[in-house]
Simulated scan of single mutants.
Amino acid sequence: MSENTAVAVDTEELRSLVADALELPVEEVTDEAHFVDDLQVDSLMALEIVVNLEKKYGIKVAESDFKQVSTLLHVRALVDSKLK
């Protein structure tokens, strides 16, 4: 994706994508909710989030990149960095 066609990341859209992957109400996926501690995300759920991100934004997310992610705000920063 070129810089001119980069997709803007909408936080609420991203929140909905993560909530769908985790099969949780959107309200539970707050900006600071810790995926493992607060939302009980396991490795399969994390993989589902990654697959959804890759499909939605046309990016590739390495497993090592996603292991550094623990909140929705971290997901947004990761997607933003991949879209640049």
Rank of each mutant, 00 (worst) to 15 (best):
D80M: 05
V51N: 06
T11L: 14
V7T: 14
D38M: 07
E28I: 04
D65C: 02
A77L: 09
K55V: 00
I59E: 12
T5N: 08
F35Y: 10
N52Q: 11
K67C: 03
E28L: 11
L24P: 05
E23R: 00
A46D: 08
K60E: 04
S16R: 15
G58A: 08
L14T: 00
S2P: 04
L78V: 01
S16Y: 15
F66A: 02
V79P: 05
F35L: 03
V75A: 07
D80W: 08
A19P: 10
S64D: 15
E63H: 01
S43E: 14
H74M: 03
T30D: 03
S64A: 11
A8N: 10
L24F: 05
K67N: 12
A77S: 13
L17C: 07
N4H: 14
S70V: 11
D20F: 07
A6C: 09
Q40L: 09
T30M: 03
S43T: 08
H34E: 07
F35V: 01
H34I: 13
V69H: 02
V18D: 03
L78A: 04
S70K: 06
K67M: 09
T30A: 08
Q68F: 05
K67A: 04
E13A: 09
G58C: 10
V61P: 06
F35W: 10
N4R: 11
A33H: 09
V69Y: 11
L14G: 00
E63L: 10
V29F: 08
L47I: 02
D10E: 15
A19R: 10
A21S: 14
V41N: 07
H74Q: 04
D42F: 15
N52I: 04
K67H: 07
L72W: 12
V26F: 03
E28V: 08
A8Y: 12
L72G: 02
V26M: 08
V75M: 08
E13W: 00
A33D: 01
D65L: 00
L47V: 05
E63C: 01
L14N: 02
D65H: 12
I49L: 09
L78D: 13
A46W: 14
P25G: 04
V18I: 13
E28H: 10
A21C: 10
V18S: 05
L78S: 07
V9W: 01
V26S: 09
A8E: 15
L72T: 02
A33I: 09
I59F: 06
T71H: 03
D31E: 11
D20R: 12
L72E: 00
L78F: 04
P25V: 09
L14E: 03
V41R: 04
F35M: 02
D80Q: 12
T11E: 15
D10A: 06
L14F: 13
A77V: 00
A8H: 11
R15G: 00
Q68Y: 06
I49H: 08
Q68V: 08
L78T: 06
E63Q: 08
L39S: 05
L47M: 15
S2H: 07
N4D: 12
D38L: 03
R15E: 00
N52G: 12
E23K: 01
E23S: 11
E32A: 12
